[in-house]
Nucleic acid binder design. Structure first.
Lengths: 136, 136
DNA sequence: CTAGGTCCTAGAGTCCGCTCTAGGTCAAAC
DNA sequence: GTTTGACCTAGAGCGGACTCTAGGACCTAG
């Protein structure tokens, strides 16, 4: 009896809402089905939580639910499809790298703008720096 | 007469769709209103395109349309609200930094998983590395 | 015994960011 | 002179990811 958690507790620990937990399950995002108590309530194991944490990381890095579902399906199918899983992960890895590069570029631009506004605000009161036609 | 572009050309140059260009305008995301030809067609200036590029960068880094609209409003209002603009930019800058950190963490996790799958696939054919209960 | 709290299911609703449609104008090409 | 193609407006529709509601079961405390 490796302590199981109720859906409410699982929500507390993962940061997902109770609704989202049920939703993820319905959507087939879980690698293995959540156990139920005698009266039909969900009982989350540590493994379930670990998997959920993976899902959260994948989601928060922009992987669509459909892709997570696909990955979960492969895991459910069991051994033998590791190359397919690897492909999914590597594709996401690539997207992630690209995304970080893009965000970094955006950050640079924003930082540049922030610097300019700051300088102008510090220098005098509201010195216009940008052309009137396109103050940014 | 600094050459103006039709909406189709503007779409080509920005990468936005014609629909999206009209949508952004309707949503008040533009800093200054796009000129019109005698017969009512949009005529985009270089300044318009520059502003659109800024919008695209802000969007692609996750700034919601509402925030871009707010920023555009401030710019339309003219000088005097630079501190407010700066605040919006700095908030986004912060979110961006956080987001990059988060993505970097996710990337590390994914890369770790990729490494493990790769090692196991290279070693023998499909060596299970993960506990049966939670193959990731 | 009843009020409150947590849980259940199925399905409807919401928000965001577009995307597409309908119905119409205009100009150039055939 | 009609067809093609780019443009116009207003507004409907869509996909993704939740989020919430309705209606009901069960348990615990007062």
């Amino acid at each position: 009896m490796p302590d199981y958690l109720t859906i409410g507790q699982a929500a507390g620990r993962t940061g997902l809402s109770v609704h989202a937990l049920r939703f993820y399950e319905r959507e087939g995002l879980l690698a293995s089905s959540v156990a139920r108590t005698a009266d039909g309530r969900r009982a989350y194991s540590e493994d379930d939580l670990e998997w959920l944490d993976l899902c959260i990381k994948l989601r928060s890095s922009g992987m669509p639910l459909a892709a997570i579902r696909r990955y979960a399906e492969l895991v459910r199918e069991g051994e033998g499809n590791e190359p397919d899983r690897l492909t999914i992960l590597r594709e996401h890895q690539q997207r992630l790298t690209d995304q970080i590069d893009e965000l970094t570029a955006c950050l640079e631009m924003i930082s540049f703008k922030v610097q300019i506004y700051q300088d102008s605000l510090e220098a005098g009161t509201a010195d216009p720096i940008w052309t009137p036609s396109q103050p940014a």
